[in-house]
Write a protein that binds this DNA or RNA. Structure first.
Lengths: 215, 215
DNA sequence: TAGATTGTTAATCGATTAACAATC
DNA sequence: TAGATTGTTAATCGATTAACAATC
């Protein structure tokens, strides 16, 4: 069941399924058919069934899917049944925003440390955690098993920091720096390029306006 | 040239092209072939040529692409030659982070106002702009032509706020709330679902670990 | 001109949708 | 059992890659 490679297109839809299933559960809905779910989510019922079946049949013919069960299964698939310790590198506005975000903890992502190069920020507290100087990162990683490093620093420093992270055996990087990181095979990078996202919006906005001009 | 619909897959790659072209320009590179660019960016040369040709031929046979010219053209395509005024709704950590982010301004995105429901935050300054009470949003939108509303508030308030935005004729929403917004046809929504992104990372991390266990 | 490299058509690949037999 | 709905195979659609003629 776990052998065939799942496409990232499918993986990318799983969190959204989880979100809707959570809502349904909170509404007290016990079962749902792919058809009903498709209407809520504005996707085809076919896609929903295909997606779920990548992981091997969570439904029952003539009944549909049990909301609670499906929610739990997708949680497990996404690895949300485990704890993931993370550190934030860069205690600027964005880094602090992510450190303060409580929902991550609810999902098993535990905020373990935050670092910055700016001495002014060192010692400040972010959700009870003191900002440490970046020089201590290496030592900290040696003494604490960290799964994920969150990069909220400018791109120039990001590239240098990645070397340290790689050396200390980090396995996953959540990258907010506007640069494509060069990491060895086996290290995961998930990019959040905020300006890319804003530019997509800008593109679509401009296109709209051109259309309107034409008629 | 503008008539055929461009797929969002292509649009999503444009900001990345722009980033690389900016780097090349800063390095003083004058011309580049699709082949060279493909090696840098780790995509196929074929895809690069196809992507650019959606917008109608920026290159020259036997020469390649002029870096400066291509950079400018993609900027225009993305609408970065225009000014876009935006307001931020929600002056929490994330909202303030986005307000403080200077690079947006460089791209023509102008920070015009920020609102919050919390009286404690009202009056505080974010990059010189005073946080206004959310009650003033409606009035503010009437008196200022705003292109983009950035939503950095919890999902419950997001849904209500969208009603106001729609009523006041906003055309684009950059949504950081963990909810799919229900807006009338014609209003653009670009979502940044941070927890979805983190869950993708978590999925891939878990999968890696299972693979390692197996051998 | 010859060589290089685009623009573009054709082939392939993968993802989505449709259809329906299996089965609860 | 009959009706509903999944799981899964087949058909379609769209996106990516390959190939090559056009052309600078």
């Amino acid at each position: 069941m776990e052998t065939k490679e799942i496409s990232q297109a499918v993986v990318g839809r799983l969190p959204r399924y989880l979100r809707y299933l959570g809502e349904l559960r909170d509404e007290g809905v016990e079962r749902i058919s792919s058809q009903e779910l498709s209407e809520r989510m504005q996707v085809t019922a076919s896609q929903i069934r295909q997606d779920f079946n990548n992981f091997g049949g969570f439904g029952q013919q003539g009944y549909g899917y049990n909301v609670e069960y499906l929610y739990e299964e997708i949680s497990k698939i996404l690895g949300l049944d485990r704890k993931h310790d993370f550190v934030i590198i860069g205690a600027g506005n964005l880094g602090r925003a992510l450190g303060n975000y409580l929902n991550f903890e609810r999902r098993g992502f535990i905020f373990k440390g935050i670092f910055d190069i700016d001495p002014q920020l060192v010692g400040e507290k972010v959700r009870g955690v003191e900002v440490m100087p970046i020089e201590e990162l290496e030592n900290f990683l040696e003494q604490n098993p960290i799964d994920i490093a969150v990069l909220t620093i400018p791109k120039t420093s990001a590239v240098d920091t990645v070397d340290i992270l790689v050396k200390k055996g980090i396995r996953a990087i959540w990258n907010f720096a506007h640069v494509d990181l060069n990491v060895p095979e086996g290290i995961l990078v998930e990019n959040v390029h905020l300006s890319d996202s804003l530019m997509k919006l800008s593109y679509n906005l401009s296109r709209r306006m051109k259309e309107q001009t034409k008629g």
